[in-house]
Nucleic acid binder design. Structure first.
Lengths: 218, 218
DNA sequence: TGTACATCAGTGAACGCGCGTTCACTGATGTAC
DNA sequence: TGTACATCAGTGAACGCGCGTTCACTGATGTAC
């Protein structure tokens, strides 16, 4: 399928009408198929049903397109994490569990965004807008970490920032090693979701967060 | 610098003498600089000071060269982890801490091997030799996990395989998010080593492994 | 030790290909009056 | 409502480039006798 002129608005003739959007979608599809390195400006144009010169009206070059994808990815990611966390309702544990599952789900269902964000090697330092979007997504984890820390015994309470980084590292580790079912990764005796949930429960126990009555087993 | 004919054995003239090795080294250097996607057969040949047709005497194609690198990487990785673990001497905790640091050190000092092994998307399924090498490296973590589990209260003892996967995920998560100092990654308020050590200690506490007297702080 | 020969490991020229990029251009759209 | 014009968003042809790959070849090395 092609995200071309007749996608939704009907045929547009000479002007595409929504080429920028179509190029982003084409790039997402190509990245999902072949990884961030395996997409070219020219092929994205072809997918959009447009001449190879057309993309230059909308993006300076390949890297700018990739950065746009990462930017949008961070925004979607932030929204997905926020939605899952839902301000910690009905309680911190249920919400935290949802958060982990949402993380894995994002990595699995949006592999192109995920790899543009974390694996494509886009230099965050040089793009403030991108960096801020990444920071906003991380801020969600940061808030979650604060709520978790608030549950720990006051004497040995760890820094929330550190806990946020731990949560991120665990999630990213599982997502990138096991979370996307391609042939390069190995088979598992349990689902990534179960693996992550178990790991999070052990980690929380280690933090000294009191356990809920129901799930002692992990 | 070039890994060319006069590298060690003196000038060889028409025959390179050790081209296969030189190509592997050139590829490692190129991958370290530009990522697994950013190395080409032709450029590796140029680095080795050899015509673009020469590599075909030693590798069927680019993918075979990449797979060779991943294979060697797994072997080196296994050796590094084993060396760090040192059969759990002088005790499980000290050895486990060393293991984590060795993991991060490998990812940092051998980024080319590391990304060929875990990020290049080489299909493990189709290359038994590669898969076995990867399995042997993982087996080290598996043994470590068993020793850790042996320290936990018998009633709630978790499966060693799961613990091994957790240890791997934590290490990989930190290594790939924070462990290599390129511009794409973000600044941290603490070293990856400290971050990993703290996370491992919390995890062990959560497993119910009794703590050593000295380090209650994490 | 010397010679003839087979094999090995390179050369270098050539090819087709797709990419990134540019350029002058032109059809379509929006707007002022 | 119609017309003139400016601007926008595309075209399509062309370019140089580096890559992967092949081919007949040849210099170097090893070995049999």
């Amino acid at each position: 399928m092609r995200w071309s002129k007749d996608d939704k608005d009907g045929p547009r003739g000479y002007h595409h009408g929504n080429l920028k959007e179509a190029l982003l979608r084409a790039a997402l599809e190509l990245i999902a198929q072949k990884g961030p390195a395996g997409f070219t400006f020219a092929e994205a144009a072809r997918w959009a049903g447009v001449s190879p010169a057309a993309p230059y009206r909308h993006f300076r070059d390949r890297d700018e397109l990739l950065a746009s994808i990462a930017l949008r990815g961070f925004n979607l990611f932030e929204a997905a994490l926020k939605r899952a966390w839902d301000d910690g309702r009905p309680d911190v544990f249920v919400a935290f569990d949802r958060l982990g599952k949402a993380y894995l789900e994002f990595a699995r269902t949006e592999p192109a965004y995920y790899s543009a964000m974390f694996e494509a090697g886009i230099p965050l330092a040089t793009d403030p807008e991108l960096r801020e979007a990444g920071d906003r997504a991380f801020a969600v984890l940061r808030v979650v970490a604060e709520k978790l820390c608030a549950q720990t015994p006051a004497g040995t309470r760890p820094p929330a920032l550190m806990v946020a980084l731990h949560v991120w590292a665990i999630s990213h580790g599982i997502a990138s090693l096991f979370g996307r079912g391609d042939a390069a990764r190995r088979a598992l005796p349990m689902s990534p979701e179960d693996l992550l949930e178990a790991q999070m429960l052990i980690y929380l126990r280690g933090l000294g967060v009191p356990e809920r009555k129901s799930d002692r087993s992990g």
